[in-house]
């Protein structure tokens, strides 16, 4: 399905497990589309193309199985979808928005998605994220743009099809920082014996003698 010439940002990493406490994996090649427009112009076309409702408040997200829409700013949203679905959404949405001021950009290759599952994930993320992750404030259906360590991320909390108890957390990060974030999250999981990961960016900055 995925063109084998494509390499995901974390292709060199294997999923990590720390008992039932935390599992870390890459969900590669997800389709991601940035949309900028006035909400009044976007709501109906978005519904028509993706079947999703346009979230209009910070932290809100409409998370469907195949397609999710995240509020990022008062005139800015991200559509997260299946691999290879981004091009079609971009095209159809552009067509629907003709005549209105808008911008639609396919950024599927810009980002990758880290998934976190397990009973201690909120605690693990709280080591790196400053927003309130208590279930009262960050329930399933929440998505925000924030910092994780020193990387800017979108953090999404959604239903986990494999677990009724715990939600699934998705961390969307730009590809160049994906490995840094992977290693940082693994380090935050050390408490529950997540294996140590060394960042690939730790190359020497001088001539070998």
């Amino acid at each position: 399905m995925i063109d084998e010439r494509r390499v995901s940002p974390l292709a060199h990493r294997e999923p990590l497990h720390a008992g039932d406490f935390a599992h870390l994996a890459e969900d590669a090649f997800r389709g991601i589309v940035m949309v900028r427009a006035a909400p009044i112009h976007l709501a109906a076309p978005l519904q028509a193309v993706t079947g999703r409702t346009l979230p209009i408040r910070a932290g809100h997200a409409d998370l469907g199985r195949r397609c999710a829409v995240l509020w990022l700013g008062p005139d800015e949203w991200a559509i997260m979808t299946a691999p290879d679905a981004a091009a079609q959404i971009t095209q159809e949405l552009s067509a629907e928005l003709t005549g209105y001021h808008h911008q639609i950009v396919d950024v599927s290759d810009y980002n990758t998605v880290l998934t976190l599952r397990g009973s201690r994930v909120r605690e693990l993320l709280a080591k790196l994220i400053t927003i309130d992750l208590h279930p009262r404030h960050f329930a399933r259906g929440t998505g925000v743009s924030t910092l994780c360590g020193k990387a800017q991320v979108w953090l999404v909390c959604r239903e986990d099809e494999t677990s009724a108890r715990e939600p699934l957390f998705e961390v969307v990060v730009r590809r160049s920082m994906a490995d840094y974030l992977w290693c940082l999250i693994a380090d935050a999981g050390r408490e529950w014996a997540m294996p140590v990961q060394d960042p690939i960016g730790q190359v020497p900055l001088h001539m070998p003698v």
């Binding site: 940002p9 020193k150 160049s176 490995d179 840094y180 940082l184 960042p199 690939i200 960016g201």
Partner: peptide, 10 residues
């Protein structure tokens, strides 16, 4: 190694 992200290209 986690002090600051070192961004890497494809």
């Amino acid at each position: 190694g986690l002090f600051h992200p070192r961004r890497t290209t494809a």
